[in-house]
């Protein structure tokens, strides 16, 4: 199991990282880390964008779905049919769910593993034939941060970005359109409020003792997610209003 994980997930990412490193005119594993992170995020960005869009439409359709459920209480077949028609009308492909979220974990863990493993000569044995083996791997980022050792500065930056990202994602006064927050909504809100402060603190605790290349990876990922979030909020919210109106609005 752990062999499979290493061969099919960790090693490809490790090779990609070294490949990028070899291509850089300025050999710096920190820059390679940032580039690899951004490439991975860019590859998945279209899916992320589409899913977020569908998520927002689905949320807006929720009252209608409940209505359908009530209307065809005793006829499951008709109920499913009516739901399908509704999805089709709004061009939603309801392919989502929490399990989809969890199958991503091995990939995320594999990338983390690459950075944690480091760049010893034993690791270099994992390189594919077409990836030339660098003589030494320069782990000094920008000439002054040793990425193989913990670094308080980078950990602090990660924690701060975590805070910004939470602030963006969980605005303090939440108005979801419901007249009054239901108890369920209230609990989510409490959790979110706690996470705005506990999240960054925990981030700092985790990162402060790990090789700072992890903190750099964390920082790059969070920066990307903040920009992504900003972009999505800007484009989707506006586009959605017009689309819902065009589709009849009810």
């Amino acid at each position: 199991m752990s062999n499979l994980f290493n061969t099919y997930l960790v090693t490809p990412f490790f090779n990609a990282l070294i490949l990028i490193y070899n291509f850089l005119p300025l050999q710096d594993i920190g820059l390679a880390t940032i580039i690899l992170t951004f490439i991975i995020r860019f590859v998945f960005f279209p899916i992320f964008y589409k899913s977020t869009r569908q998520q927002i439409i689905m949320n807006r359709l929720q009252p209608k779905l409940l209505k359908i459920q009530k209307e065809y209480k005793d006829d499951k077949e008709k109920q499913v049919k009516a739901q399908f028609a509704l999805y089709k009308k709004h061009k939603v492909n309801p392919l989502s769910g929490c399990l989809l979220t969890l199958i991503q974990l091995p990939i995320i863990f594999a990338v983390y593993r690459v950075f944690l493993n480091g760049f010893s000569s034993e690791r270099m044995a994992d390189l594919y034939g077409f990836v030339s083996r660098p003589e030494i791997v320069n782990t000094i980022f920008l000439g002054f941060i040793n990425l193989s050792k913990p670094n308080l500065g980078l950990a602090l930056i990660s924690a701060f970005l975590q805070f910004i990202s939470s602030k963006m994602l969980f605005p303090s006064s939440k108005n979801t359109g419901a007249d009054q927050p239901q108890p369920a909504q209230k609990m989510t809100n409490i959790m979110q409020k706690q996470m705005v402060f506990l999240g960054p603190i925990m981030t700092l605790i985790i990162l402060v003792s790990l090789p700072s290349i992890i903190a750099l990876y964390w920082t790059a990922t969070t920066v990307f997610s903040i920009v992504q979030q900003w972009f999505i909020q800007k484009t989707i919210k506006v586009g959605m209003e017009t689309e819902i109106k065009e589709n009849g609005g009810n």
Partner: peptide, 20 residues
């Protein structure tokens, strides 16, 4: 994926189909 501190590492957004 909704609130956890690793949430930004996911490739897909939190996809809850329920309010809660």
């Amino acid at each position: 994926p909704k609130v956890g501190i690793f949430r930004q590492f996911y490739f897909f957004p939190a996809a809850c189909r329920f309010e809660e």
